[in-house]
Design a binder for these strands. Sequence first.
DNA 1: CGATAAATCACCCGTTCGGGTGAAGGTTTT
DNA 2: AAAACCTTCACCCGAACGGGTGATTTATCG
Lengths: 140, 140
Amino acid sequence: MTRTIIFYGVALAALVLVLKFIEYRFIVRDLSIEFYLGAVALFFTVLGVWAGRKLTRKKIVTVGPAFVLNEVELQRLGISKREHEVLGLMAEGLSNQEIADHLFVSLNTVKTHTSNLFLKLEVSRRTQAVQRAKQLRLIP
Amino acid sequence: MTRTIIFYGVALAALVLVLKFIEYRFIVRDLSIEFYLGAVALFFTVLGVWAGRKLTRKKIVTVGPAFVLNEVELQRLGISKREHEVLGLMAEGLSNQEIADHLFVSLNTVKTHTSNLFLKLEVSRRTQAVQRAKQLRLIP
DNA sequence: CGATAAATCACCCGTTCGGGTGAAGGTTTT
DNA sequence: AAAACCTTCACCCGAACGGGTGATTTATCG
């Protein structure tokens, strides 16, 4: 962004120089003021479009992939820390057994957590749970 | 977009009119050509930024959340049309039985499709398949 | 300190999933 | 026409999943 601004400034300065240059030489007398203005208008329109795109693109990019956990929703649904952890691993495509190994707990424990999650998320399948969790921004 | 262009044209015409108006009146003689050009440059820069944003926002919006199917990858993995369809429904969190009902085929058929999908996507669970498909932009 | 919530584990039961094989009918390509 | 591919369906079996109940041990909060 800084570079864009700098470039824009340089372009402006260059234009002023060019104008000054041609103004005190030969061309200026032969051309009408309208032509002059038209050229400047066109140039700055293009420059404006370009600058505008440069300046707004990055905003959009960072707004896109950024993930902020929706703790409000998390609390509203009464999802505990551990359950949220299980939810995350579930979203990675891990099986209950794999989640159990990951968390150093038994398969039954994971099953309990998943069951509770399904209740709280009001779904009946893990794929739906993942889908819903993403939609509620409980997971990236 | 069309409206933007029209508005832009109108703005241009209006500016020309204003210029013409002030040119043949009182102000023009008192102001330097540089001031004139500066004002025009500023105006058209702003106009350019605005127009650029208007014209590109839709593109960006559609480029961001909009989904373009990665047909190259789809073909590379040899995923058929029907399989891709099943993949989509799978990503919605539907069970095999539900997919079968959706497509008016038997559960076994769906199972065959999912099995082939798992082979082609090199995964072993449907959650992983969905994850991978999203990452490869085979589904939204 | 007692109540409450969280985390842990277990068992049962029925359903769903995944993996493998086979096969029939249709379309496309060669 | 033959080969290749897609789609469809079937059956089997073991693993994973979902649903329910019950119990113990830690926090944590009032």
